[in-house]
Write a protein that binds this DNA or RNA. Structure first.
Length: 869
DNA sequence: AATATCGGTTTTTTT
DNA sequence: AACCGATATT
């Protein structure tokens, strides 16, 4: 929509400006002219910069944006790349495919999936959906799910799919006489576990196809299947994508590797033309992959490090360029990282270096327990902020496993520090949100038995196990779907009036919702509103006495604002399109983008932290058994992966790194003594300045008590014998009510990220969503760190009984005409701001507001909790 | 059919 | 400690 020239500047005219500020290796990578390029990009070596410049360089040399496919692992990385490309080449960036593996595959399958039996409204099952399906299958086949847990079985199936092993092959090899979909089969004794896996795998795929559904791994595997079996499709994509870029290549699994090969047409037999850089040429596409084998941390999920190690053998005429200059960290931090990763065997030696100088030493701290560790971190954050002026958003706390966030969170709340927790239970995995989405899914795809059965009795309508069983039996007998069974409820034997009545009502409800959805397909937010009110989901929660349900209502309205945001940002929005974006979000997608400042300390797992950087990083839980994780300590290759994780963690820090540990840590409610992590020993001693070298208990045991500088301001805390959570009780934290804090705080204030899909915009983000025109949940101050407890008291908020549907989709009656550039407004969360832009889009009008330190936000007038001054 | 209670399991990391 | 599923109770 914008004229190209606006952002383009001289860049396209003068390619030299694309490389003039790069180092020799970077610029070689940008300019490299050839079929296959591996950029070995060490941490902080500017890989995104090189990747985007290389794309811009190609554009400047005559290739078309539409010929480019760039693949990342997270939506956030994709959005960031798109943004940076837009800065280089302007609106040309809109014509490229820049997306995750999974969304690229969805896009392909939506277009061409019918060739392999997928109708375009197909559902995408997440892990929970898949697990439900496995349980259903397990029950039908009489499988001992105690012994073979759904998780275990799904893990196996996932392995098969990541390796492109088809269920047909497995069946042929291990259970040749099983017919998927056959009724009455009982899994009795089997000679071989493989036999059981083969049968369940086949049955699982059968039911997925009956339900017109795919799981995450299917997105990749079935796209490969499509490209391999359908020449029109593979021809189309091979000629379309002449230049393929893959980020984080070390994390690709076998299926993804094959997918890239297929898309590029490497094995098509077409002859490569070495000079075929221009548009419309023949032969395999050019491939550029970027990665760092030292940052491979997803082997447990099927990532195959060999993909990157063997790149030169796999792709003809491949070239490798290493980027080893780090622009992020101090030499001290890099020395630590280099020393740790050097302990891994079988790796190509590589040394990062920096021109930034030595910097401050790494700070070490040995706490008595997790609470004290967290207390130390909170006090350091406070000190850094007040004494040294470090912004909260420039600090991050990282840990191995999500469970560790608990005590850290407590300490942050206690110290009144603003924080933001990334990950944990995802927004879309919350029960109430999943319920609402299950309705949408069932509307879009009535064959989706898993989601249909999920909502059958949600909210409670008197349809229990018996009713479900009757319908399922009928559907099975007649080889039809669960909902089709409901359609014929009067023909079901054993149906009593007491069941038939609510069942009929459910059928009618679904018909009405389906009709409504058909008429409002382009307005997902209205469909959401309709579902929430007509189904009774919202009402049930509003009527509830359970204080947790208040935040559930919050989450549901947030779902609706996410839908509103989606239809705002997406030109041709559909309900199915909305469901896609909800299915494919990652934790890291909720993080604020590069240019946004959340004003909060970020807390996340090391896995989530990959690709990010912070001036100050706290690496916590540096204990044997915590990190490295106990389950990874036995196995050499798993330990190597833990070490790479440590490498990732250390290299996130730009200026200051803290490593902390606890001598005692409670796991499963049990206090355990923890040894210092071996990774601490692997960091050269002189790089760490220990503020507290040993925990109190360790000191007594060790005998020698020499004078280390130990400003032991927390010493008092852990002296009690009971370390567990109760030791926290004497602080301002009422132990018993904590759970409620956690819920309402975490879910609505800090966890419920709203940025999703393409979204770096933040309409819904924390906009506490105007509810029936009175701002809901306003008891919370915008800044985190301060928790306004929502006890059972504010039940008064149950009032808006009046037509919740219209209330949710209505607006707060602000007129865009009343807003002008330069006007001042206040926002419930961000505070005072100045309008810098207005866009009149009728109902969906947008104002862009500068909130100073809180950044510039685009707000949808209709839903934003703002007031004009 | 819905709710209460007990007991066993759980935590690696996620598109 | 928290979550799930199975069992018992209404």
């Amino acid at each position: 929509m914008e004229p190209v020239q606006q952002n383009m500047g001289p860049v396209l005219c003068d390619p030299q400006t694309l490389i003039k500020d790069l180092n020799p290796q970077q610029s070689e990578a940008v300019k490299y002219y050839g079929q296959a390029l591996l950029i070995g990009a060490g941490a902080g070596s500017g890989k995104t910069r090189v990747l985007t410049r290389r794309i811009a360089w190609l554009l400047a040399h005559g290739i078309w944006a539409s010929q480019i496919l760039a693949i990342t692992f997270t939506n956030k990385a994709a959005a960031e790349m798109r943004e940076r490309l837009a800065a280089l080449v302007g609106s040309e960036a809109e014509h490229m495919w820049i997306s995750t593996f999974h969304s690229a595959c969805v896009r392909i399958l939506r277009r061409d999936g019918d060739q392999i039996g997928l109708e375009s409204g197909f559902s995408i099952y997440d892990t929970a959906d898949s697990e439900r399906l496995i349980k259903l299958i397990g029950a039908d086949l009489n499988i001992d799910l105690k012994r073979y847990t759904p998780r275990m079985i799904l893990g196996k199936i996932s392995d098969y799919k990541n390796s492109l092993i088809s269920w047909k092959d497995q069946l042929k090899t291990y259970a040749a006489d099983y017919r998927p979909g056959q009724r009455g089969y009982q899994m009795g004794r089997f000679d071989n576990v493989e036999e059981l896996f083969a049968v369940v795998y086949a049955e699982y795929q059968y039911r997925l196809s009956q339900a017109n559904a795919v799981d995450f791994d299917d997105l990749i595997m079935r796209t490969v299947e499509l490209l391999r079996t359908c020449p029109q499709a593979s021809d189309y994509y091979r000629h379309r994508f002449r230049y393929i870029f893959v980020d984080e290549y070390q994390d690709t699994n076998h299926a993804q590797y094959v997918l890239v090969r297929e898309l590029a047409g490497i094995d098509s037999g077409e002859q490569a033309d070495p000079h075929a850089a221009g548009a419309g040429k023949v032969g395999p596409s050019w491939i550029t992959v970027v990665g760092d084998s030292d940052q491979s941390i997803y082997a447990f999920r099927g990532a195959d490090i060999r993909n990157i190690q063997d790149f030169e053998e796999d792709f003809p005429n491949a070239k490798t360029i290493m980027l080893e200059q780090n622009y992020r960290s101090t030499q001290t931090i890099l020395d630590a990282a280099n020393a740790v990763i050097a302990k891994n065997e079988n790796r190509k030696p590589k040394k990062l270096w920096t021109a930034l100088g030595k910097g401050d030493p790494i700070i070490g701290y040995a706490a008595d327990n997790a609470q004290q560790e967290a207390g130390y971190i909170a006090s350091e954050i406070t000190r850094l902020h007040t004494e040294e002026g470090v912004a909260y958003s420039d600090m991050a706390i990282m840990y191995r496993a999500n469970a560790q966030s608990r005590s850290l969170e407590e300490a942050m709340i206690n110290a009144n520090l603003p924080y933001q927790l990334v990950g944990g239970t995802k927004f879309y995995e919350r029960r109430e949100v999943k319920d609402a989405i299950a309705y949408l899914q069932a509307i879009v795809n009535p064959a989706d038995d898993v989601n249909m059965r999920r909502i059958l009795n949600v909210p409670k309508r008197g349809l229990g196990a018996r009713a479900e069983g009757l319908v399922a039996m009928y559907a099975d007998r007649h080889g039809t779907t669960f909902f089709d069974g409901i359609e014929h409820l009067d023909r079901i034997e054993g149906m009593t009036g007491r069941t038939a009545k609510p069942l009929g009502a459910f059928r009618d409800l679904m018909h009405e919702l389906t009709d409504f959805a058909r008429e409002h397909d382009a307005k997902p937010s209205e469909v959401v509103a309709e579902v929430l009110s007509r189904s009774g989901l919202l009402e049930e929660l509003q009527r509830s006495e359970d204080p947790q349900d208040a935040s559930r209502v919050d989450n549901l309205s947030q779902l609706q604002s996410v839908a509103a945001e989606f239809e705002q940002n997406t030109p041709d929005a559909t309900l199915a399109g909305f469901l896609e974006t909800t299915a494919l979000v990652a934790d890291s997608d909720q993080l604020p983008g590069e240019n946004e400042d959340s004003g909060k300390v970020t807390m996340m797992t090391l896995h989530t932290a990959k690709g990010l950087e912070y001036p100050v990083v706290f690496l916590t839980g540096m204990e044997q058994g915590t990190f490295p994780h106990s389950r990874a300590m036995e196995d050499a290759s798993e330990l190597s992966e833990e070490r790479r994780l440590a490498y990732v963690g250390i290299t996130r820090a730009k200026r200051r790194l803290y490593v902390t540990r606890a001598a005692v840590r409670a796991q499963w409610g049990q206090a355990n003594e923890m040894m210092p992590s071996q990774f601490l020993d692997e960091i050269p001693e002189d790089l760490i300045d220990w503020k507290r070298k040993e925990a109190g208990m360790e000191r007594m045991r060790g005998g020698w008590r020499s004078g280390f500088d130990d400003d032991d301001e927390f010493g008092g805390w852990g002296d009690d014998d009971d370390f567990g959570t109760s030791s926290f009780g004497n602080s301002s934290f009422g132990g018993s009510s904590y759970g409620a804090h956690d819920r309402s705080y975490g879910s609505s204030s800090s966890r419920g990220g709203s940025s999703h899909g393409s979204g770096r915009s933040t309409y819904g983000s924390g906009s506490r969503f105007s509810y029936g025109s009175s701002s809901y949940g306003s008891g919370r101050s915008g800044k985190a760190g301060k928790v306004t407890t929502r006890h059972t008291k504010p039940k008064a908020l149950d009032k808006p009984k009046t037509a919740p549907a219209s209330a949710l989709s209505k607006d707060n009656n602000l007129d865009i005409a009343d807003f002008h550039i330069g006007d001042r407004i206040t926002h419930d969360q961000y505070g005072l701001g100045t309008i810098v832009d207005t866009q009149d889009k009728g109902r969906n009008s947008i104002i862009t507001v500068d909130f100073g330190t809180d950044g510039v936000k685009r707000l949808m007038l209709r839903v934003a909790p703002i007031e004009k001054l």
